[in-house]
């Protein structure tokens, strides 16, 4: 099944480059696969794709920057060009 293999390929690629984008592509491909897999006819293949989908979501959770880091990144960028969030209001 091409879409399922595509999902795995993106998931593999995510280990080397642009993890968030490739994981999102991988999730899209797995979701596409699930539309065409019938759990009543081929339960184990259907389950295997659900398992892979779960692992892609799990990986995305590892890469997602918590909000606090993003706020720190913003504060640091502003500091580098001598801007504070307060002075922007004037």
């Amino acid at each position: 099944m091409v879409q399922n293999n595509l999902g795995s390929a993106y998931a593999d690629l995510a280990r080397y480059q642009d993890p968030i984008e490739n994981l999102q592509e991988s999730i899209r491909a797995y979701q596409q696969t699930l539309r065409f897999r019938n759990p009543e006819i081929d339960p184990l293949r259907y389950a295997s794709t659900q398992n892979n989908l779960g692992t892609a979501y799990w990986n995305l959770a590892q890469h997602q920057q918590p909000e606090v880091y993003l706020k720190q990144a913003i504060a640091l960028t502003l500091k580098r060009c001598n801007i504070t969030t307060q002075s922007k209001n004037h």
């Binding site: 184990l44 389950a47 659900q50 779960g54 979501y57 918590p66």
Partner: peptide, 23 residues
């Protein structure tokens, strides 16, 4: 855009649980 890690993990858990209905 922030999807929180909690939300992704919950989606992961949902998918694993569906998988376990058949596996």
């Amino acid at each position: 855009q922030q999807e929180t890690p909690q939300e992704w993990l919950q989606l992961a858990i949902d998918a694993y649980q569906i998988a376990l209905r058949y596996r």
